[in-house]
């Protein structure tokens, strides 16, 4: 029993906060210096039931809102999932440079 518990503990420590990074994308820059802006949104999925992927558009909108009068260049996008108990959290993080013309 003690052996089983210690094994369970060891595995639990190993399995804590597990993630999977699906995608990372970087885009061009044209040489201007700008302000770093960032947007991050997430979606909690329970038992696989997810009907939409609007959290991606929300992150995109947030990024645009932070740079209303300029160009957003050098956008770095990370799409990852934090794994959980019969549920998981999909995350989108976008960072870029706001170049005011």
């Amino acid at each position: 029993m003690l052996k089983k518990l210690s094994l369970l503990f060891a595995f639990s420590v190993l399995s804590a906060c597990a993630h999977s990074v699906h995608l990372y994308q970087a885009t061009d820059q044209n040489g201007g210096s700008g302000q770093l802006i960032e947007a991050m949104t997430q979606q909690k999925v329970i038992l696989g039931f997810a009907q939409e992927t609007n959290y991606v558009n929300q992150a995109y909108d947030q990024l645009k809102q932070q740079c209303p009068k300029g160009r957003v260049e050098g956008i770095n996008t990370r799409y990852s999932t934090s794994l959980g108990f019969f549920s998981w959290t999909n995350k989108i993080r976008m960072r870029g440079y706001c170049i005011n013309s």
Binding site: L8, F11, S12, S15, A16, C17, A18, H19, S20, V21, H22, L23, Y24, A26, V45, G74, N76, R78, S80, T81, S82, L83, G84, F85, F86, S87, W88, T89, N90, K91, R93, R95
Partner: peptide, 26 residues
């Protein structure tokens, strides 16, 4: 089997314990 119940979700490759490892790329 018990632990895998705590690690459900879509995966690309194997799971990692730090999701921010790629953020230094920028």
């Amino acid at each position: 089997d018990i632990i895998s119940m705590f690690q459900m979700g879509p995966r690309t490759g194997n799971m990692v314990f730090n999701e921010k490892y790629a953020d230094s790329i920028m």
